[in-house]
Design a binder for these strands. Structure first.
Lengths: 232, 232
DNA sequence: GTTGCTCGTCACAAAATTGTCACACAATAT
DNA sequence: ATATTGTGTGACAATTTTGTGACGAGCAAC
């Protein structure tokens, strides 16, 4: 893992502004890439995997909010921290921005110092774990890059939620988790769903895993579930 | 069986709202106390030590944020989780509220279910977990993280109650406990069950431990039981 | 619009756990 | 030895917890 400073994608349709921001960030030790619209941004995200996105509210074509919302919906990019940029007077949209999934919100004009400070804060909060390493366990293979799970090379057909659940389990083996903890970790702490929903997804995951691996998800009666490679 | 039930202090200047919240929480098994302003709240906190505070943003006199900030500054109350309540339209203050030290933030109106869910989440995060260290004694291993007991690597099949019983014994070895004490410690103080029930669970536990370890649970005639590694 | 997919919830089925009892057995007292 | 008291043990029904199929809402792609 190269720890050569975090990389930031700047998305704004005005080149001078991008440039200004880029200079400020580079002076602070960040690596920068730029995009003028949602399409370019998406391309950059895919192949250069920035650690954070500075996203202008106003964009030609797909608007910033819309783009943010879309990013947050896709598993592959959901974890990407986003800081929204907005011009003065558009502040009413703050809530809307945050609801779209932005992690923070800065009003133009802002000082470089402020920008860097917020950026640091967001990066600190966001999960530093680059989950890029495939995890494999007795024929079960989860590939975060392909965003896919295979059981003996046979692709598993599971929904995004089951994928996240399995990923969590595979990265937290041999340990019992309550339904509440799973909701926190897999669904995200601030959603409201019934605890029994966990059971249903466990069921779906087990079914998808098939006889070969379903036993790995063990029920811990009175507590929750556990992912274990050891025999029951 | 009833869980221990956490207590919640509801701070809001409008009595009907307090009442509504209280009812919802009580139905969910929480114990409630109320306060109409910061002063009352402080008094309640001192002498009734709630596990969590629901704090309205708007309060006569000392405002909610201010109060939260103050609580977080005092050592005695710094650890007390706070959930801020705010009316719709005050959402801009969200950041401010969280910065004041609130652990979560709910916008009125909210459903009782949502409230309870958030409350649970906050309590879960703030409540430090119990012992995380595995306990091992001559081939008998209790791992609280896995929530599992193994005897020479063979998992023991026991119910939640036997698990708690064994955990208690392993953390309180070499000492005799009466049935009443065990009921208190393992079942939780405020349940009513026959003392002889302890015998039955001891029996079940012994059976599960098998010949290898059953002798560790010794009968102290006329008194109760003891867990000991020493030979009888 | 339709279609196809995923998700959360529900109602019911299935399974495991629990507390209690009756009686067998063991230890002490009379 | 016999009575008395305390503990071990198997069985049982009630309750709790989990498994499972189905359904409708929501959403994206068409």
């Amino acid at each position: 893992m190269t720890k050569a400073g975090k990389s930031v994608l700047i998305v704004d349709d005005e080149a001078p502004i991008r440039e200004m921001i880029a200079v400020a960030l580079e002076m602070a030790g960040y690596e920068c890439m730029e995009a003028a619209n949602a399409q370019e941004a998406h391309a950059q995200i895919i192949d250069r995997k920035p650690d954070l996105i500075l996203l202008d509210w106003m964009l030609p074509g797909t608007s910033g909010v819309e783009f943010a919302r879309r990013l947050k919906r896709e598993d592959r990019t959901a974890e990407l921290p986003i800081i929204m940029l907005t011009a003065k007077g558009e502040e009413d949209n703050k809530v809307q921005g945050l609801e779209a999934g932005a992690d923070d919100y800065i009003t133009k004009p802002f000082s470089p110092r402020e920008l860097v400070a917020r950026l640091k804060a967001v990066l600190r909060r966001s999960t530093p774990q680059g989950i890029e390493e495939p995890i494999e366990v007795s024929g079960l293979l989860l590939d975060p890059v392909c965003h896919r799970v295979t059981s003996f090379d046979k692709p598993l057909d599971i929904g995004p939620t089951e994928y996240r659940l399995l990923q969590f389990f595979m990265t937290h083996q041999e340990r019992a988790y309550s339904r509440a903890q799973l909701l926190d970790q897999v669904w995200g702490g601030n959603v409201y769903v019934e605890e029994r929903t966990v059971d249903v997804h466990i069921r779906r995951l087990r079914k998808a895993l098939g006889e070969a691996h379903e036993h790995m998800i063990q029920t811990v009666r009175g507590t929750g579930y556990r992912f274990s490679t050891k025999v029951a």
